[in-house]
């Protein structure tokens, strides 16, 4: 049996899929156990640890201070500040999580995921005043979100989106003092505050397409065998923020509808998970 799996992995999978189960015992729509813990890293402003099955991801947010580019006095302030980004996301898929990655340069997977997350983070409407370092906003906080994969067993997209969101919810920022230009200090006597991320959650779910079967939350083996992958991300208003499909074959309309429905079903679970850990 093991030999069959090694030599003809796709045939091996098909035998299972015909009976609507997967080799690890899940049905086609089952999602692996998802756990979340926040605030375990003390050296950064906010952190989270997400585990989906064996895939584990740790996300830490480093807050730094800088002066925003000078805003034209006559120009429209709000327009410019909206385009100006305060959050920078980066994904690290290092050699520690899988032997598929090397340490010399970031893999294509990590770079594309980073771009997707950067695009997604701009959908969170966080007011600019939340990033003010002092009262007037002469200096601002800049958040560097770094996501490190610790164990790579498929469906890294979901794990990183959940990790990113819950770490951002976990961020505490402190008001500061500017002593001289370019000398910034945290004032530990002032109260800390959190970012106001409300009603703006991301609910992600990924699928792998093998032949005509759609598998939710694919593991590494399934991702390797699949002919296409779908990622759908909803926000709290049940609007689609991110929909990705990559693959060689086209995708049927009702398949996509089914996927969207499955993602909606995941909504309550993720919402509860993030809220419970951040209360």
């Amino acid at each position: 049996m093991e030999a069959f799996q090694k030599i003809h992995p796709l045939e091996f999978y098909r035998k299972f899929l015909e009976r609507s189960v997967r080799p690890d015992g899940r049905s086609l729509t089952d999602i692996r156990k998802t756990t979340l813990s926040v605030g375990s890293i003390t050296t950064c402003s906010g952190s989270s640890f997400v585990k989906i099955g064996n895939t584990s991801v740790v996300c830490g947010i480093r807050a730094e201070v800088g002066e925003p580019p000078s805003i034209n006095q006559t120009g429209i302030v709000s327009n410019q500040s909206k385009n100006h980004s305060y959050i920078f996301v980066n994904v690290e898929l290092g050699p520690i999580c899988s032997n598929a990655f090397s340490s010399s340069k970031p893999s294509e997977k990590a770079m594309s995921l980073g771009t997707q997350l950067n695009a997604l983070i701009n959908r969170l409407d966080i007011p600019t005043t939340d990033f003010y370092f002092d009262n007037e906003g002469k200096a601002r906080w800049y958040l560097y979100v770094d996501i490190y994969c610790l164990d790579y067993d498929g469906n890294i997209t979901d794990a990183s989106i959940i990790a990113m969101l819950s770490a951002l919810k976990n961020v505490t920022l402190q008001q500061g003092i500017i002593v001289e230009p370019n000398q910034y200090f945290k004032d530990s006597e002032q109260p800390t505050r959190k970012l106001s991320i409300q009603n703006n959650y991301f609910i992600p779910l990924s699928f792998a397409v093998i032949d005509d079967y759609i598998l939710s939350d694919p593991c590494l083996e399934e991702e390797k065998l699949s002919s296409g992958q779908i990622t759908i991300t909803f926000n709290e208003n049940q609007e689609i923020c991110l929909l990705l499909y990559t693959g060689t074959n086209g995708i049927a309309d009702d398949h996509l509808k089914k996927c969207i429905q499955l993602t909606k079903n995941r909504f309550d679970f993720i919402n509860k998970l993030v809220n419970e850990n951040n209360s």
Partner: peptide
């Protein structure tokens, strides 16, 4: 020389120290 491909901030930022500690 190694080149970093990751996206970054064009603005220079720094980690602020604690004011009490500084004093």
């Amino acid at each position: 020389m190694k080149i970093d491909y990751r996206s970054g901030n064009s603005i220079k930022t720094q980690i602020p120290l604690d004011y009490k500690e500084y004093l």
